[in-house]
């Protein structure tokens, strides 16, 4: 990087995995952004919360199961994972269904957090 600028990057994931490639390629950007020592937050909204569902078995669809990568994020110092409560509830899920520790936020708290960011990338 040409200088040491640190910005607040937020990645907003609103899409389910496997049906499209967005979730996987979003994760690739997240890892690189962390490698560039930026302040990274990940947000899971709407169908994006399905990305974190435990127990993904992809053998039968012959697509790589990339969900273990979410557990590896901590090793890249990506520790700010936020899930919107309303999105979880609307899908019959609870925190126990998720494969990583997250902070569950109400919609207003989530909105306020978005407002604090410098760069918001939505996938």
């Amino acid at each position: 990087m040409s200088d040491a600028t640190v910005k607040k990057f937020m990645f907003v994931n609103r899409k389910a995995p496997y049906g499209t490639i967005y979730a996987l390629e979003s994760l690739e950007v997240v890892l690189i952004t962390a490698a560039f020592d930026q302040d990274v937050s990940l947000v899971f909204l709407d169908d994006g919360v399905y990305q974190l569902k435990k127990g993904q078995q992809t053998k039968g669809i012959e697509i790589k199961n990339f969900s273990p990568t979410y557990r590896a994020l901590e090793g890249y110092d990506v520790e700010k994972l936020y899930v919107e409560r309303e999105s979880l509830e609307a899908r019959g899920l609870t925190e126990e269904d998720l494969l990583v520790d997250v902070v569950v936020l109400g919609r207003a708290e989530m909105g306020a957090l978005m407002d604090e960011q410098d760069v918001v990338l939505s996938f």
Binding site: R14, D46, E84, R107, A108, M110, G111, D115
Partner: peptide, 14 residues
């Protein structure tokens, strides 16, 4: 598609 609905649900202002 629910993107506008999601925005109105989550976003605070702007």
């Amino acid at each position: 598609n629910s993107s506008l609905e999601s925005c109105l649900r989550v976003a605070v202002s702007g």
